[in-house]
């Protein structure tokens, strides 16, 4: 859902870009890629921050249970191993 909203906003931006004056394709377009990164700096930076925050949060909450899960997984593997 979050992605769709962002997509809609960015799509409006994309439409605006469509009205840019025609350019000469034989010239090196490296400048566009350079400038573009500044334009998306906020977006990618923020998304990364949110992602890191969620990752840290989920690690914080799952950590106490992790040991139990690992043990269970290990014992499951052992069982499978003995069968074969």
């Amino acid at each position: 859902m979050k992605n769709i909203k962002l997509s809609v906003l960015l799509y409006i931006g994309f439409l605006l870009l469509l009205f840019a004056r025609p350019a000469f394709a034989y010239l090196d377009p490296g400048t566009g890629s350079f400038v573009f990164q500044f334009l998306i700096a906020g977006l990618v930076g923020a998304l990364f921050l949110i992602k890191s925050f969620w990752r840290n949060l989920s690690v914080f909450f799952t950590k106490p249970f992790k040991k139990v899960t690992t043990n269970t997984a290990k014992s499951k593997n052992k069982t499978n191993g003995s069968r074969s």
Binding site: L10, L17, L18, A25, T31, S33, V35, F36
Partner: peptide
């Protein structure tokens, strides 16, 4: 898509 448009907008500048 947006990246391509920006490349076009800034080409030669």
């Amino acid at each position: 898509h947006l990246h391509a448009s920006m490349q076009e907008k800034y080409s030669g500048k």
